[in-house]
């Protein structure tokens, strides 16, 4: 028996729409749940005072600092390295077996569980290089963890720049580097920024790799050789040790708002940039 196209069409709309609605609902539920439990605790005092009694009382000031410094260091290291690698792979090398293997390698690297990176960071940065549990060890480990994401998103963004732009640039006597600087990078910037945002998001939310490499000190770090604790790690420890579920949700709510704020800023910046160029 054949169903009339009118009904299959209706069925398709229902299923597709339903899936979208379900996804949205789950997302909204999680955010509302965390904010509802956490927001009552969040105020300026909570944000700006140090944790007391292992976090049972007091605020989250030092973890706020840790959450800013670690991803920042990770991005400062990973972005130039990742963008350069991606540009080299797409613009300076022809598509060969070697580039395919490198690409396959980065894809695999992107799928490795973060705790493996944590273990690597612990063995290499913390013990072998003797950097100890520190912002430096943690930041470098996170940098390696997000490098594959930045490389792949940058590659896609660079490839999406029309080939005709490159041709025009070369035909006007540009070198490859001039073409990269004046045409490729400005046009790929929105895509590259997306990769960087994904990287920031991943490193802000990371716990396993951070505990292994940056430790979980609640003291205010004074240099990049000091240990620190991020909000994500703080939340994990508070919840896991049963220290204070109120403060745990307060931390989680702050984390969600921070990520939201970063993303909104990035979109706003990107929108302004695109508007300026078209």
């Amino acid at each position: 028996m054949r169903i009339h196209p009118r009904y299959t069409q209706r069925l398709a709309v229902t299923i597709l729409g339903g899936a979208t609605l379900l996804t949205l609902a789950v997302l909204v539920f999680i955010i509302v749940f965390v904010l509802e439990k956490g927001l009552p605790v969040v105020n300026f005092r909570f944000l700006l005072t140090n944790a007391e009694d292992m976090g049972r009382s007091g605020g989250i000031f030092t973890t706020l600092i840790g959450t800013i410094v670690l991803p920042l260091l990770a991005i400062i290291v990973a972005a130039p390295l990742g963008i350069s690698t991606a540009v080299y792979l797409t613009e300076y090398t022809l598509e060969t077996k070697v580039t395919k293997i490198i690409r396959f390698g980065t894809d695999c690297l992107a799928g490795i569980p973060s705790i493996i990176f944590g273990l690597f960071g612990f063995i290499f940065f913390v013990t072998t290089l003797g950097l100890g549990w520190s912002i430096l060890s943690g930041g470098l480990t996170l940098a390696f963890m997000i490098l594959p994401t930045i490389i792949r998103t940058t590659e896609e963004a660079v490839k999406a720049v029309p080939k005709s732009y490159r041709q025009v640039s070369f035909s006007l006597g540009a070198t490859r580097w001039q073409t990269v600087k004046r045409i490729i990078l400005p046009n790929a910037l929105p895509g590259i920024l997306t990769g960087i945002m994904l990287g920031i998001g991943r490193s802000i939310g990371e716990t396993a790799a951070v505990i292994f490499t940056a430790g979980s000190s609640l003291r205010l770090p004074t240099s990049i050789f000091d240990s620190t604790r991020t909000m994500a790690v703080h939340f994990y420890i508070l919840a896991r040790e049963g220290l204070s579920s109120e403060n745990a949700y307060g931390t989680a709510a702050t984390l969600i708002i921070a990520v939201l704020a970063i993303n909104l800023t990035a979109y706003w910046m990107m929108g302004r940039f695109i508007a300026k160029r078209s």
Binding site: P162, S164, Y165, Q167, V168, S169, S171, I183, N187, R277, S278
Partner: peptide, 10 residues
Amino acid sequence: MVFALPVALP
């Protein structure tokens, strides 16, 4: 060189 398809750079 002028190409077949007009390409204004963005």
